[in-house]
Every structure is written in C-alpha cells, then in structure tokens.
Amino acid sequence: MREIKKITLDEFDKSLELSQYAFQYSLSEESKQKRRESFHLHDVWGEFEGDTLTSKLHLYPLSVFIGKAEVKMGGVAGVATWPEYRRGGSVARLIDHALKTMKEKGQVLSFLHPFDIEYYRRFGWELCFSHKKYTIEKSDLQFMPGVPGTIKRLSVQKDLEIINTIYEQFAQNYNGMLKRDRNWWENHVYSEGYQFAVFFNEDLRPTGYLFYKVSDKLLDVQEFFYLNGESRRGLWNFICQHDSMVEKVKIIVPENEQLHYLLKNPKVKIDVEPYFMARIVDVVGFLQQYTFNKVDERLLLHVKDDKADWNNQSLVIENGEVVVGNAEEEGITLTIKELTAIILQAQTAQFLYEADMIKGTVKKVQLLDQMIPKRSASIIDFF
C-alpha cells in the first residue's frame, strides 16, 4: 500500500541513502552528522510502500525578494526515486502533494533547479532564471578609471550584518533573489577557501562585495554585488590587482549584467546558462501581494493550470489591484507557466504572444507588459 508522509529523523538514513545513490556522491561521517543536525530546518516528503521508501522530495521554507517585497517561496530539491520504482508516477504524486502543502503554508511561489527542464514544465514550472558567466583572460585585466575607496576582507561569521546589508540592497533590484538568514549564509553560501572582499567608499560606507577564491591560477568569483557604478569599478580594479597571480578570472553574474561593455576589451568569453525554474503556486495569493504599475485600463487574465486546479481563475487587474473576474469576458488566456515568466520578467508578454504561447489581442498584450515593473529575474543561490 502506497503512502506519502513526512520523513522523520529516525528515517534520515533511508533518505540519505537514496540521495547518495540517485545523485552519485558519498558523504563522510562528519558531513552526514552535519546534515542530520540541520534535518529539522526543512521538510522531506517520501512515498512509502510498507516500510520501504520508494521516492522523496525536499521542501525548503524560504522567502524571496520581488523588488523590495518579501514573498514566501517553497524550494523544491532532492527529488529522487529508486530505479526499480521509476516511471510509476511516484514523483508526480509527491509533486502534487508538495503543491498542496505549499499552498496551505502560504508559499505562493516555488523554485527548483531542474535535472530536466521539459520534465518540470509538465508540472507547471517554467525556466525563469539564467546565469551569465564571464571567463576573462589575464591580458584583459585592465584597470578602469580609479575611484576613491578601499577594499577590506571581511568574515561572514563576524561581519555578516555589513555583507548582508549590501546583498539585500542589491537583491531588491531583481525578482527572485533569496532572503538569507545566518544559517543560510553559513551553511549554503559560504564555502571553505572562499572569502569576502568589501568595497568601502571615501565616506567609509560599504557599497559592494566580491565572494571569491584564488586557486591554481584562477580567480573564481561566485558573487559580484555592488550598489553603484563606483563600487562596481572599485571591485573590478581589485580583481585586476590579481594580474600577477592568475591566468584567468571567472565571474558569475545576473543575466542582465553588462560588465563586459565597460572593459577595454569587451570581447571576452560570455556564457549564458539556464539555471532555475519557477512556478506560481497560488495565483490569487501571489498577485494580491504583487505591486503592479498603475495604468488607466483594466485587464482580464484567464489563467489555466492543470496541476493546481485552484489556479484556474479569471482575474481582473485594475488600478494595481487584483480581483476575481468574469470568465466570459474577453482578455488574455495563458497557462500558469507563461504567467510566472511574465510576472517575474523572465519573458515579456509580447514575446510569448509572438511565439503563440498566450492568446489575446495585441492591445491587451501590450497593456499587460505596461503593468509589469521592469525588473530582471535573478537567483544566485542553489538548493
């Protein structure tokens, strides 16, 4: 008999055994103990046949910034099934259960890092986040015009308030960046060997930081966050100070970053890689928290969601407010995937209309784009 239930600490070893098999890694006893101690910080749901764990799904209770607003988000991770139980619908049942659980908890959004994008599109998630990765040769480490200010190396253990303040101010320029607490900083962001270099302007105010490591002639920058052009130039010049130590620099940045345009040789290697997917879990709950641009006209959205029937709604957006509307009225028809991409600004309504992925008149599609604040989608974290 099948049963979906929350995995308890007593069943931790069963869950970890499945993870190690499915994702092909092996942990030391010290690492296992560390995971055991943090097991209570998120939920792990499993499908069982009798006492046998057949599949599992981890659900992290997180929050993300949508601009300056904080929104509850359920982070889906660690989805795994033993090979002998695959293709039996077990994961689909777990995802269905997870959607209902997230709605009950007020987690109106959900993010995940997919092993297969098309697979999760079947369940209503859509690709909304990509990374831009720069690979810069030593010869292109040329200084920008100097800026007054200093660089100090700080510690996440001792100086978290300073680092987190910069992070949050930067994150609020985007849709999707995680709200980080101390546990997240220390156990999900910080990695051994990496350090924080913080830029202080001439007034001694911290306005940017790098999270980086130098090893084997490579400067690896995992986070490059700044609050203005001055701090961006200051951090870049600090990178250039490593020209006698490294052969290459690799930098991960949000997809809309234009650092290369500022370089003396903009023709550096740039890779854009699909990263995370997103899904609106509760369309009414989310849109009522969302801040639309106010326009003079009203717009009706007919939302379709074949995995979460509570999202099958006709909704009116008027004067920045969202209310239930008339299903017979003319409007824009779209699935929860397209709506998620548009609202997070991963894609414009105009693009999806031209791709024949949403239905409506050109005027109404343009109106929807006018209602959405122009703020790029980005997430840097991993779970």
Rank of each mutant, 00 (worst) to 15 (best):
R2H: 13
I4M: 10
K5P: 02
S15W: 09
Y21F: 15
F23H: 12
F23V: 11
Y25S: 02
S26A: 12
S26I: 09
S28Y: 01
Q33L: 10
R36G: 00
W45R: 01
W45E: 05
W45F: 15
D51T: 08
L57C: 13
Y60G: 00
K68F: 13
G75P: 08
G75K: 10
V76D: 02
A77E: 00
A80L: 12
V91I: 15
R93F: 06
T101H: 10
M102L: 09
G106M: 06
Q107N: 02
V108Q: 00
L109P: 01
L109S: 02
R121I: 07
F129R: 00
T135F: 13
E137R: 06
P145G: 01
I151F: 12
L154H: 11
L160G: 09
I163N: 01
T165F: 05
E168S: 09
Q172N: 02
Y174D: 02
N175Y: 13
K179W: 07
N183T: 08
W185I: 03
W185F: 10
W185A: 04
A197R: 00
V198A: 03
F199M: 07
F199K: 07
F199N: 10
N201T: 04
N201H: 06
P206H: 06
L210Q: 09
F211P: 10
Y212Q: 03
V214F: 04
D216V: 05
L219G: 14
L227S: 02
L227Q: 09
R233N: 14
G234C: 09
L235S: 07
F238S: 09
M245T: 10
V246S: 10
E247P: 04
K250F: 06
E257H: 15
Q258V: 15
Q258M: 14
Q258N: 15
L259F: 03
Y261T: 14
Y261Q: 13
K264I: 01
K267R: 14
V268M: 11
I270C: 11
P274A: 02
Y275D: 10
R279E: 12
V281A: 01
Y290P: 00
K294D: 07
E297I: 03
L299S: 04
L299T: 00
L301P: 09
N312F: 03
I317G: 06
I317S: 07
V324F: 03
N326C: 01
A327I: 08
I332C: 08
T333L: 03
T335L: 02
T335F: 04
T340W: 01
I342E: 11
A346P: 05
A355E: 15
D356M: 05
I358P: 02
K364N: 15
V365Q: 05
Q366I: 05
Q370F: 05
P373L: 10
A377G: 09
I379P: 02
I379T: 08
I380Q: 14
